[in-house]
């Protein structure tokens, strides 16, 4: 992948995966982008991303999906990555109720840092753990309804609905882009990835002064 030339696409969409530690964000990402699931995956420390292109209504959409560490304190370094995101997947583990309870906090995090028009999906992952289900689909669907989220349940392990979830997210983003909902986001540029955290702002400023 490293030495490929610039690929052709009509739109570049940045999607972020958020949710508590251990709900399966990294495996959702690898299932969608590489069709892989790894039972022995490592904890995500910091930020990772991967891409995959799909075609919607004859347009080639390149999805750049960002995966961040789930532990709360990492938000101090990852909050900048919400900027420029046009889609978000709020992931919880259907076998761990606490991860569903925290969705409220993740939603607030999004409202604070992301574009107002961002497409948000509520994703209940690990449906393969049927016998351990702790979050009822109806409860989650009702929550999603109340908060204007698209709701879907997935299993990265047996790949149920993973493709569908991302497709749905990208379709919705495309629809909103076509309707010109996103005014502040640079869509369709190769480097539509703002890094406006303190660090880069500082550097920018300093080196302007310096020269």
């Amino acid at each position: 992948m490293s030495f490929q030339g610039p690929e052709e696409y009509d739109y570049l969409f940045k999607i972020v995966l958020i949710g508590d530690s251990g709900v399966g964000k990294s495996n959702l990402l690898s299932r969608f982008t590489r069709n892989e699931f790894n039972l022995e995956s490592k904890s995500t420390i910091g930020v990772e991303f991967a891409t995959r292109s799909i075609v919607v209504e004859g347009k080639k959409l390149k999805a750049q999906i960002w995966d961040t560490a789930g532990q709360e304190r990492f938000r101090a370094i990852t909050s900048a990555y919400y900027r420029g995101a046009v889609g978000a997947m709020l992931v919880y583990d259907i076998a761990k109720h606490a991860t569903f309870e925290n969705i409220d906090r993740w939603l607030k995090e999004l409202r604070d840092h992301a574009d107002d028009n961002i497409v948000v999906l509520l994703v209940g992952n690990k449906t393969d753990l049927r016998h351990l289900r702790a979050v009822m689909s109806e409860d989650a669907a009702e929550y999603a309804d109340r908060n204007n989220l698209i709701f879907i349940e997935t299993s990265a392990l047996d790949s149920t609905n993973v493709e569908h979830a991302f497709q749905q997210c990208l379709n919705e983003v495309y629809k909103r882009v076509a309707d010109r909902h996103f005014s502040n986001v640079n869509i369709g540029q190769t480097t539509a990835l703002p890094t406006t955290n303190l660090q880069s702002t500082i550097l920018e400023k300093k080196f302007c002064c310096n020269s």
């Binding site: 910091g46 930020v47 703002p194 880069s200």
Partner: peptide, 13 residues
């Protein structure tokens, strides 16, 4: 810098 890659992205881990 030109690519907007800062160390948070690769050096945090």
């Amino acid at each position: 810098e030109g690519l907007e890659i800062n160390p948070t992205l690769y050096a945090a881990s």
